[in-house]
Amino acid sequence: MAFSPLSVVPRSAIPSPVSNQIAPRPFLKWAGGKSRLIQQYLDFFPQNFETYFEPFLGGGAIFFYLSCLFPVRGVLMDINPELVNVYTCVKDQIETLMDLLEQHRQNHSQHYYYLMRATVAESSIERAARLIYLNKTCFNGLYRENSKGQFNVPMGRYKNPRIFDPEVLCAASKALQLTQIYENPFETVLNFAASKRDFVYFDPPYYPISATSNFTAYNRYSFHAEDQIKLRNTFAELASRGVQVMLSNSDCPFIRELYQDFKIHPIIAARAINSDPSKRGKISEVLITSY
């Protein structure tokens, strides 16, 4: 796997984003996205780093926030091939992607949604447009796959869904120009991050805090206790190299014990996805840092 070193001018402090142009932000709805938690994270970002790594990319909220502040050169990874393909197409084929999304916008209906959900797109750009379309029109913006990797979320109840925002996609494309994007499991970050100049942020599938809160069930890739232990060992190895590492997870005895040798910061989050609205509310999470 080819990799060329990346660098940016180190920052002595993280300023507030100021721009006359639209700021980069997530273009996908994603379960567990961190957009609403960033204000609680601000005091815990490292003050200096050159290369940013995010092995569980998801909606990319932290990456896009940092991109509001300065050009971020980094390595973005995820094990989900469809997600990686979307980011790659947003980075490299933005105009063609928006043309296809406009076609989806014009054709949107209940019949069309289920037709697209059952369709296997052939080219990478068609796959990317299909995923964004389904993501913006499905129930709760939830990405969920069956055991065969087939998207299986019903259509949402939106009167006029915003299929895509050209300004948001273009801002995301611009931010992604300085990144390398890979379909990789999280542990391959060990091949790249090696020193205090590197900042790694892990946002893995959360460890379930109850039998009914299995946060890992949204795709075909299960994430069990042994994977959490493997992740902790990866975290510890990176920390031993001097890499600045930050990780989000559920607040429970298992996770607190795993990371007892590191700094654990409580975070208050809103549980947004639950079939019963009465069970959506505040919940404690943890943000763990090596520095």
Rank of each mutant, 00 (worst) to 15 (best):
K148H: 12
P205W: 07
F199N: 05
V168I: 13
E145Q: 14
I94P: 04
N184D: 09
I181G: 00
A129C: 06
R105K: 15
K159I: 11
Q110I: 11
Y112D: 07
I163A: 01
P204M: 07
R127A: 07
N140R: 13
R105D: 09
R130A: 10
I94D: 10
F199M: 06
Y114K: 08
S124D: 14
A194Q: 14
D99K: 13
V120F: 11
F215S: 01
H108T: 06
V120Q: 14
F151K: 02
D92C: 09
T119W: 12
L190V: 06
A194K: 13
Y133E: 06
Y133T: 07
G156M: 08
P154C: 05
F151I: 09
E102L: 15
C138A: 03
V168P: 02
F164P: 00
P208C: 03
L169G: 03
S147N: 11
G149C: 07
F199E: 03
T137L: 05
I132V: 14
Q177K: 15
K196Q: 13
M98F: 01
C138G: 04
Y114A: 02
F202M: 05
P154W: 09
R105Y: 08
E122Q: 14
A217Y: 10
Y158V: 02
N160V: 10
V168D: 10
I132P: 00
A128G: 03
C170D: 10
M116F: 06
T96C: 09
N140F: 04
E95P: 01
H104K: 06
K136A: 08
R127M: 09
F202E: 02
Q93H: 15
G156R: 07
Y206L: 07
I209R: 10
L101D: 02
S123D: 11
D165R: 07
N107A: 15
S147L: 12
L100F: 08
K148I: 06
A175R: 01
M98H: 04
L97H: 04
N191M: 11
Q180V: 13
Q103I: 15
I181V: 02
I132Q: 06
P185K: 11
Y112K: 06
S109Q: 06
E187S: 12
I94N: 12
